[in-house]
Design a protein around this nucleic acid. Sequence first.
RNA 1: GGUCCGUUCGUCUAGCCAGGUCAGGACGCCAGGUUUUCAUCCUGGUAACACGGGUUCAAAUCCCGUACGGACUACCA
Length: 509
Amino acid sequence: MNDSKIRVRFAPSPTGPLHIGGVRTALYNYLFARKNKGKFILRIEDTDQTRFVPGAEEYIIEALDWCGIRFDEGVREGGDYGPYKQSERKAMYRKYAEQLVASGYAYYAFDTAEELADMRKKSEAVKKTFIYNADMRHQLKNSLTLPGEKTKKLLETKTPYVIRFKIPQERSIKINDLVRGEIKVRSQVLDDKVLFKSDGMPTYHLANVVDDHFMKISHVIRGEEWLPSLPLHVLLYEAFGWDKPQFAHLPLLLKPDGKGKLSKRDGDRLGFPVFPLQWIDPKTGEKTSGYREEGYFPEAFINMLALLGWNPGDEREIFSLDEMTQVFSLERVGKSGSRFDPEKAKWFNHQYMLKKNNRELAQMFMPLLKNHGIIADTEYVEKVVSLVKERAHFVHELWDQADFFFKAPESYDPKAVKKRWKQFSYDQITALKTLLAGIDDFSPENTEAAVKKWLEENGYGMGAVLNAFRLLIVGTLKGPHLFDIIALIGQEETLRRLETGLHELGRKE
RNA sequence: GGUCCGUUCGUCUAGCCAGGUCAGGACGCCAGGUUUUCAUCCUGGUAACACGGGUUCAAAUCCCGUACGGACUACCA
């Protein structure tokens, strides 16, 4: 196995549904792996037992499946570097935490959470920041301050403890980030982070570094919220004597209404989904909408998301996953956070609507027709879809655009009637009906030619007649080319609708 | 408060690293055209380099400062 191979991971914690920012992080990792012929790994970071949410892990996998983002290794796929769930790797974290203590890079701390919270509060009261660091650790209860005997005894008597990293004094840490360039931090502003919790589980920092090392991760591509802990991670790699991976911190997805990063809690508040799939909270039963259920095509969703923070450098905007893979690079990821634009998301979906073939759209449309009590054959639906898809953003909008292909109008739009049903309309449509009844070939070309010839011969206004005609066929003034419509619904149905319309609207005095 | 990161049209962004084109594109919006209608489509328009200083013949681009925004500051990830 070649160590220089590209291996990246997406490492969510199963504390709820994945939001679109998380999906984008997964997507960029996926694209980077594919582009560089590397491996993409899913690791579940479930070290916080208190925040575990049932169904979250399944949700994450299902969401990425829907997006077409595939893993090479992971909880489901397996692989040579498993297990891929941190709760199943528990033993090794303790081992490496102890190793750090033994080598002097970490220490046992016996302060309780309450004691520390209290000290923070007191510091705050005098406008000071409490930092568990080189300045403070000698005043606190830990294996650095306590005599060896005492520490030993506390450990033997099972006194709760954590293992903290001993941040070195006076070090300038320089790290190159693939997105943001060089980042400099002085070690004295860092605090002695907990690596290993009193419940026997590691914190994110330890688990992350240990796993990335043993899973041979070459590039850590994650959200910008991790940037502040990057120095700690770098120090950890050094303490272990391990080569560190390259880092890339992605800009955040921001709330469109102003402040802060997008979060799971935004739910439906924003007027657009923040989740790829619908989520039903297992505790409250509360339902939050998802892009899938809203009618977005996964290709459109992914495409839209990819362009939020990345661009190909040319003016293309519509990309399949494969096409994105060809041109993706971390260099072209932006530095600043982006706001999501619901309008543009709709536009993307519309673009994919137009790209989809009619058969596929018909298959998606049929179940909706069924909900309206309509069973139609595929071929007919395909023809309908081909005529109306350009005027819909979503499959579910198709019904509003195409209902008249499946049933005669039940009423006539009053506004349209007022505008287009004139004194002369009754006689004109009556005559038109006779004309249409006499046509054998009801193809659009043929009926159109015949009607236009008739209009010309009688000196009738095209707009006047055709709009009244449309009104009786459709029920309102909308829809595709009229002669395409009547060809599809057929001569018999056309004549029937004219008859009904003449009867309903009557002769206007 | 502290640390780190960021800032080009309303939004997503190109251009910045290797200073020198009326700052380009897309969404939206507006107007016009096409169409029997609606939509599509086509044409045009709208609108931005956060601010101040410095370097330079020349700065959106390099440097410094300010402002604003964001992330982090848990035995959460």
